[in-house]
């Protein structure tokens, strides 16, 4: 891919991506830019869509594929779960198990479980389990530590 940087005094910062076919390389570039813009690029039936983090309930990794779950549907994501959790930490995302990162703002209620585990009820009524390994991180995060 050819990269051109042009300095124009007084010009607004702008990124223009020229492409013939929306291939993996363009996808990867847009996903990278979306993380920088604190939005998540997802595959919406073949078209690229940018999700605002508050829309996302949680992200899950299934068989080496990552999916973002919103109230309106499930979307494939090109990024890894770790990359999403790290990029959106400040926006309230937290790794809650080996295969899941949850948006803390999407949690309606929490319930203490046995052996240090925590059950979370999401805005759409779904229940997820925060494993003991990640429960401490959740507790610390909620306390602001």
């Amino acid at each position: 891919m050819k990269v051109t940087l042009r300095r124009e005094p007084g010009a607004e910062k702008e990124i223009v991506v020229r492409y013939d076919v929306m291939d993996d390389e363009v996808h990867a570039l847009l996903e990278l830019l979306s993380l920088r813009e604190k939005r998540l690029a997802v595959d919406d039936g073949g078209a690229l869509r940018l999700l605002d983090p508050p829309e996302i309930l949680y992200c899950e990794s299934v068989d080496d594929h990552t999916y973002a779950y919103t109230a309106s549907g499930v979307f494939g994501v090109g990024q890894t779960l770790s990359a999403i959790a790290e990029a959106f930490t400040q926006l309230g995302f937290l790794r809650c198990s080996k295969s899941m990162a949850v948006n803390l703002h999407a949690i309606e209620a929490l319930k203490s479980g046995d052996n240090g585990r925590i059950f979370a009820t999401l805005a759409n009524g779904e229940h997820i389990l925060v494993s003991r390994r990640y429960a401490k991180a959740l507790r610390d995060r909620l306390k602001g530590e």
């Binding site: 309230g92 703002h105 209620a109 203490s112 479980g113 909620l142 306390k143 602001g144």
Partner: peptide, 24 residues
């Protein structure tokens, strides 16, 4: 005892969740 412990922890967790959402 387990019931009391679980209930108290649930209240504590939800209180912290509420404060976290308010702060952000």
């Amino acid at each position: 005892g387990l019931k009391f412990e679980q209930e108290a922890d649930t209240v504590y967790l939800n209180e912290n969740l509420r404060k976290f959402k308010q702060k952000q």
